[in-house]
Amino acid sequence: MSGFTVVNPGMFSLIQDAGRHGFHNIGITTGGPFDNYSFNWANRLCDNLESAACLEILVGGLVLESNISTQIAITGADAPIKINDKSVDGWRTQNISVGDQISIGYASAGCRSYLAVAGGIQCPQIFGSASTVKREKLGGLHKNGQALMQGDLLPCNTSQVKITRSVAEQYRPQFDGDVAEIRMILGYQQSQFETSQLDRFFTAVYTISQQSDRMGYRLEGPAISTSNNEMLSEGICLGAIQIPADGQPIILLCDRQTIGGYPKIGSVFSQDIAKLAQLMPGRKIRFKAIDIEQAQILLRQSAQ
């Protein structure tokens, strides 16, 4: 088979495409790229379909060896990239020849890199997607939710395209700043929170806890109390900010459970989920409310 051999899988590298949609009714979550902004750019650079399968690389340490000639693009975190022994840039296409070794070192800012290959990784699908969800044992190369392993072969097609494309500096994410501002839409259950609790939530600085992953980010900071902790379980959308009994917010992300019973103060604006994806545990965030009209205008603008 032609493609890339995994010489070193790195810390935690996953195959992700646009995610698994239409199966929430039987309890299957979406998966999909955590930072979909970087994911989309990686595919766009390679002239791929929006849904083409890429690699999502947590922190780094990935080494691949190619047995084809093709083109790749790496976006996302600031991580050193080498082709053989030569340092190359991210956010632009790189031509790959047979025998080339591609390595992504440890990120110095941000924490998730995306590697797209021309035509996409030819990964089998399950429930309409190749996205890897470890908890559900679905997706990935072996369809069983397993992360990349040493010796895996990523099937890819040869590409003769050599055109160089790159993303202009102003469109690349900035990872600096002490406290990241995360925009959110106040939810339908905000009436369960007293004004004093909402004030507390919006003035607080929260730290991303060590118990954070693609399923959810647990936050540490001022506790928020609610008037209603007993609720029937109901559907949970991407980015929902739930407040459990201990008052420490949890943001539910790509691999979230589909239903749950904690009150929700609102939901993170999808464009800022990409920002969260690049924040490691220990980093700090603050919330800012935007209204739904504003959010939908921003979404339509970015879709154009």
Binding site: H24, N25, E234, G235, I259, Q296, L299
Partner: peptide, 22 residues
């Protein structure tokens, strides 16, 4: 529509906001 999540007494309707507004 993107997805539907039926539950005890509710239904979460996830839609494509670039084709229809709330």
């Amino acid at each position: 529509l993107i997805d539907l999540v039926p539950s005890y007494h509710s239904l979460l309707v996830i839609y494509n906001a670039s084709t229809i507004d709330h």
